[in-house]
């Protein structure tokens, strides 16, 4: 049985494995990989368009406290927020978030604006 793929099987025997020995050999992300959302909080204007468009309700913005919060456990990496951001402060980075031992959110605080230079 399987005369036809004998050649292929022999070739596999002599070539490198098709799989990766993962933790030893690190995974190479492509530039497009959707790992996690990051916010350049300085450019963010806290307009909360991303909060309204997020299909997974993973984002929250508090204008009083000047914070932008993401719940990485709800985020589905759909990039909707990155596309709708009017200031392009949101971006999708290829690295996945590290393994966590408890569910937590990530909050970024926008620094107070410096007074306008005269």
């Amino acid at each position: 049985m399987g005369i036809q793929i004998t050649g292929m099987a022999l070739k596999n025997l002599l070539s490198r494995p098709a799989t990766k020995l993962y933790p030893v050999e690190p995974q190479v992300y492509t530039s497009q990989t959707r790992g996690h959302v990051d916010n350049n909080i300085e450019a963010c204007i806290l307009c909360s368009i991303c909060v309204r468009k997020c299909p997974a309700t993973a984002l929250a913005v508090d204008k009083e406290a000047r914070t932008w919060t993401i719940n990485p456990f709800s985020c589905v990496q759909c990039m909707t927020c990155v596309r709708v951001c009017p200031r392009d402060s949101l971006s999708m980075l290829p690295e996945y978030t590290p393994v966590a031992s408890n569910m937590s959110t990530r909050t970024l605080v926008k620094p107070e604006e410096k007074p306008e230079e005269a």
Binding site: I45, C47, S48, I49, R52, P86
Partner: peptide
Amino acid sequence: GAEEQGAE
């Protein structure tokens, strides 16, 4: 949001 956005 739209109003604020406009103002901004």
